[in-house]
């Protein structure tokens, strides 16, 4: 493996840019192609396919054997609300290979003491997400029960093509949420993307159990189907 190629791939990952490393087995030659450069690459279409599936794999083409190493950004989990469920969810997310961030403008909740090892941002969601905009490798959980805090995050999530959006609250709470979002111009297709009530139905009771049900739902959304494609209209 060429060090310069590995460096290019590692740098892309740090900056959350997707790409594919191409290795030719016959001559050992190697290159890293960023997603933005697929169109100009002779294998572009195959690279795009591999990235969409999110799977590294061997490729035989015209008698030549290649290996494609897919580099997709690590999935991010944005937790709106520095609440009890988030305290259980953040460490579980890390173990599952997700990068959690907690956002809550209420400074009494958003403290490092309550969230060791997890980045906590004590700002309003629209401010906090402006510096790290959600992308299609991002999952967002709305956990505050407070529309003032949850709604701005939900609007951004719906516009940003996140692979998962979950919202805590009863069916009644969710019906009101849907009404508010519809008033902002979101259609049924967009609103159907919200998982509510949040989490898989495993009969969870405690905050930690609810966290388990949410992690299960996030993983299902990530793995069961290819990630949503880029370029959805806002």
């Amino acid at each position: 493996m060429r060090l310069d190629v590995l460096k290019a791939m590692n740098a892309a990952r740090r900056e959350r840019r997707a790409g594919v490393m191409v290795t030719r087995f016959d001559d050992g030659s190697q290159r890293f192609v960023e997603a933005s450069g697929f169109a100009a690459d002779p294998l572009g279409e195959r690279l795009d396919q591999a990235l969409r599936m999110g799977k590294s794999g061997a490729l035989a083409l015209d008698g030549v054997e290649y290996f494609l190493t897919v580099q997709a950004p690590p999935p991010r989990l944005v937790l709106i609300g520095a609440v009890h469920i988030s305290q259980a969810l953040a460490p579980m997310a890390r173990i599952a290979g997700l990068d959690p961030t907690v956002i809550d403008p209420r400074t009494a909740f958003a403290t490092p003491e309550r969230f060791p090892d997890t980045p906590v941002v004590a700002e309003w969601p629209d401010e906090a997400l402006a510096t790290a905009p959600p992308d299609r490798y991002t999952a967002i959980c709305l956990l505050t029960h407070d529309p003032k805090i949850d709604d701005p995050a939900l609007v951004l999530a719906l516009r940003a093509d996140c692979f998962y959006i979950g919202a805590l609250g009863s069916k009644k709470t969710h019906a009101k949420r849907i009404e508010r979002m519809r008033a902002l111009g979101f259609d049924d297709e967009a609103l159907a993307r919200i998982h509510a009530p949040i989490g898989l139905d495993i009969g969870a009771v405690s905050p930690a159990e609810i966290a388990v049900s949410i992690i299960g739902e996030v993983v299902a959304s990530l793995r069961r189907k290819p990630l949503r494609t880029e370029g959805r209209a806002p």
Binding site: M1, L3, L6, K7, M9, N10, R13, Q71, P74
Partner: peptide, 9 residues
């Protein structure tokens, strides 16, 4: 996998 490749570098 990403940590592993970062370590390689």
């Amino acid at each position: 996998e990403d940590d592993v490749l970062a370590a390689a570098e």
